[in-house]
């Protein structure tokens, strides 16, 4: 074999040796461009939100300049955020979880039972979180270790858990009338200067989860497991464990959603969580996380939840009757999917 001392340079300048060391800075390394590339997915979602709001405001400036409309969205949005963000992890790991509405209902039920029994709500929150994570572990283990399709298995678990709630409670709701006297309520769910506090907690949750997703070992492993589980396995990542962890994390989020939903309404309903299934799923995908796994965006998912919860308010606020809501719901989902598809071309 002759030694080829002078490496050849191909058309695009690849595989050259030595020459690169004192090159000018690479275009993708310039700080602004780098920031843009790293955040491209959710910036697209933000664009969708801005355009949508501009259309709504143009249609009816008077309604959209009143704080009341925003306050009502901010009251209900947190519950959706606690569900959407962990679901981004699940979808990134190339799984799906349809059992979170029942997990949310179940954890909220445990919270309501503890508070109703006269214990401090903080204790109730801990109990709810433990319940949610245990249910996540159960669902995750079923999917991962019994090797079931997550789509079907979690759908089944959703029915089973909801059925269990209905059987055990005889479909009776629990009203927590004294909840607003407690410190837990004041800290987590009261209003300060017209701002519902739960939105601040939800935003903190989104922030931590975004860091966890991009800058933590767990987040990176969720990415590689969703991207190429065989490779991850060959490189010593415990693929099954990572998948189960993602489901446990989903259970944690669902539990927080259940607690906040109960605190906001002072009541726990046996159907608590049911209405969130489709909007939360839509939020994840509207937010810019693709269905095939490996990539995604937490911040985008949060903005997706914002978009989805504004559609209904916005369509009615813009002066259209409620009959138009579903149509616009669908329209915005489809338009943002097309937008993300175009945005993601560089990945595939």
């Amino acid at each position: 074999m002759t030694d080829i001392a002078e490496p050849k340079q191909d058309k695009r300048g690849h595989m050259t040796t030595g020459a690169g060391s004192h090159d000018p800075i690479h275009p993708a390394e310039r700080p602004m461009r780098r920031l843009f590339l790293a955040n491209r997915a959710w910036l697209g979602t933000l664009g969708v939100f801005v355009v949508m709001m501009a259309v709504f405001i143009a249609a009816n400036p008077r309604v959209f300049s009143s704080w009341g409309l925003y306050a009502s969205v901010l009251t209900t949005l947190p519950v959706a955020l606690f569900l959407t963000v962990p679901l981004v992890y699940i979808v990134t790991a190339a799984e799906i979880d349809l059992s979170f509405p029942a997990t949310m209902g179940f954890a909220g039920w445990i919270f309501a039972l503890v508070v109703q029994a006269g214990y401090d709500p903080f204790l109730g929150i801990v109990a709810a979180i433990l319940t949610g994570m245990a249910l996540g572990l159960l669902v995750g283990s079923l999917v991962v270790y019994a090797n079931l399709s997550s789509l079907i298995a979690t759908l089944g678990m959703n029915f089973m858990l909801r059925g269990l709630i209905l059987m055990l409670t005889q479909s009776k709701s629990i009203a927590l009338v004294t909840l607003d006297q407690t410190w837990a309520y004041r800290i987590f769910s009261s209003q300060v200067y017209g701002v519902p506090l739960q939105i601040l907690w939800a935003l903190a949750f989104v922030f931590v989860c975004a860091l966890l997703y991009n800058r933590h070992r767990f987040g990176v492993q969720v990415h590689v497991v969703g991207d190429n589980p065989d490779s991850a396995n060959e490189m010593g990542v415990d693929v099954k464990r990572v998948r189960v962890k993602a489901f446990v994390f989903m259970g944690l989020g669902a539990a927080l959603a259940g607690v906040f939903s109960t605190m906001i309404n002072f009541t726990w309903w046996p159907t608590s969580g049911d209405g969130y299934l489709l909007p939360v799923l839509a939020s994840v995908f509207v937010g810019g996380t693709p269905t095939w796994g490996g990539i995604g965006t937490v911040v985008g998912g949060a903005i997706g939840a914002l978009i989805v919860s504004f559609i209904q308010t916005g369509v009615v606020g813009a002066g259209l009757s409620g009959f138009y809501v579903q149509f616009f719901n669908g329209l915005i989902i489809i338009l943002s999917l097309i937008g993300h598809r175009w945005n993601q071309v560089r990945y595939r």
Partner: peptide, 11 residues
């Protein structure tokens, strides 16, 4: 010997 101007560690 894998230096190229076309990509970065973040590619």
């Amino acid at each position: 010997g894998f230096t190229s101007r076309v990509f970065t560690p973040q590619s």
